[in-house]
Design a protein around this nucleic acid. Structure first.
Lengths: 226, 226
DNA sequence: TTTTTGCATTAATGATGTCTTAACCTTATT
DNA sequence: AATAAGGTTAAGACATCATTAATGCAAAAA
């Protein structure tokens, strides 16, 4: 497997150095940022597998950064772990609600941190996650940058939700995505929508791109097939 | 989606009650055990999605139980989180090495716990088990991601229950699964169905895949054999 | 600001496939 | 032969999804 990319974010250079050193020693590809704003921008560029976020930072704090990251479809599946002073129960809760996957207490003990990171990455391993340009080939292709879809050369412009749903499904053609997965990916984890919302969007896609591309697996979810 | 099953293990009845209550309130299906031995046995029966394990317990402690659970192929993919007194750094490390997915410090604050559980389950929901096709080889093979079954190259799409039943049986070819085990795995523990339900589904599988693959062990259960 | 437009969501209804049941049949075991 | 366990079948109950139209909302245009 490729090296996992970790984005380490803290405003204290000492911490960046100490932790960064230890992570690199473990074979991770480490990038660093010293505030939330910088972190979000860098994350968009490098698309890390895991983001370690200090909660307290100037410019933009960790929780705020976390929310922003979670809103980017590219980064929605990145793991996010908070680094925070212990006994900050409030931030602990808020952190998770903002979409974090773990919470790591300061002061950080490198060995503990490594164990924990391994556990986190172990979980998400095996999810290819289309970082790269999408498989064009068949009938339908996508240009994420331009937010455009091509069907037999014809250029289509889809609304946001439809587009994101399509991107998700087409990212792994043939694979079934459960409704829960779709909701988590396209809508986000804390958005609550009714039962029929996904169906309607699927229908729009079928209408615009052809029924045959989208297969329903009853009780499970949907998949895209060429 | 089905309710997630959580197995809660602690030797203090008060904890079981408090945490159990809160988890049920969140819509989880909760089972409890008060020591490691009991936990392992119960886990084999109900096949939980997540196991919350106290570290310090009589009879068999959490770490030992964790190791044993990880050795059962049925349970290999269950999430395991340790509950332990804070500042026990050693057990923290050892816990992860035993194959745990998270570490939750006591005293437990219900809201914190819930957040964390959600994060854990959210993660694993997006990873529907092994990324790659199962055992495969001759005759019949399965692709869980695509929800497809291949019989001599031919592609079949089975309904949910049939598919899940097949996945269970084929996960350990040759092994006999009792009716109870099948019910717990495929139907869930609180679902009550009649005596003939399993038979009917087995029959459908035999119809579609060939009689020879599914052997009945009278008075015991069924097994898949290549 | 007001109007307009288009998207996201919901609600209501209809269609379809899946699951379960019930009644009866078959087979092995004693 | 009697019994218990499972096999078979078809019909009805049930769950899930498809479809459509209407609503609310927010961004863009006037």
């Amino acid at each position: 497997m490729n090296k996992s990319k970790i984005l380490l974010v803290d405003d204290e250079p000492d911490i960046l150095e100490l932790i960064g050193y230890n992570l690199e020693k473990e074979g991770y590809e480490v990038h660093t940022a010293s505030n939330g704003r910088e972190a979000v921008n860098l994350a968009r560029k490098i698309v890390p597998d895991l983001i370690l976020l200090d909660v307290m930072m100037p410019e933009m704090d960790g929780m705020e950064a976390c929310r922003e990251i979670r809103e980017d479809p590219q980064l929605r599946h990145a793991l996010i772990a908070f680094l925070t002073a212990r006994n900050e129960d409030y931030s602990q809760i808020a952190g998770f609600d903002a979409g974090a996957d773990d919470y790591i207490p300061k002061p950080i003990k490198p060995r503990v941190l490594i164990s924990r990171i391994k556990a986190l990455l172990r979980r998400s391993a095996g999810v290819p996650e289309s970082t790269s340009p999408l498989p064009a080939q068949i009938g339908i292709s996508i240009d994420k940058e331009k937010y455009l879809v091509y069907k037999d050369g014809e250029e289509l412009s889809l609304p946001k939700k439809e587009f994101e749903l399509l991107v998700l499904l087409i990212s792994q053609p043939g694979r079934v995505f459960t409704r829960d997965h779709i909701l988590a990916s396209v809508w986000g984890n804390d958005v609550i929508v009714g039962d029929r919302t996904i169906d309607v969007h699927i229908r729009k896609l079928r209408e615009k791109l052809g029924d045959d591309y989208f297969k329903t697996i009853k009780g499970v979810g949907y998949k895209f097939e060429p």
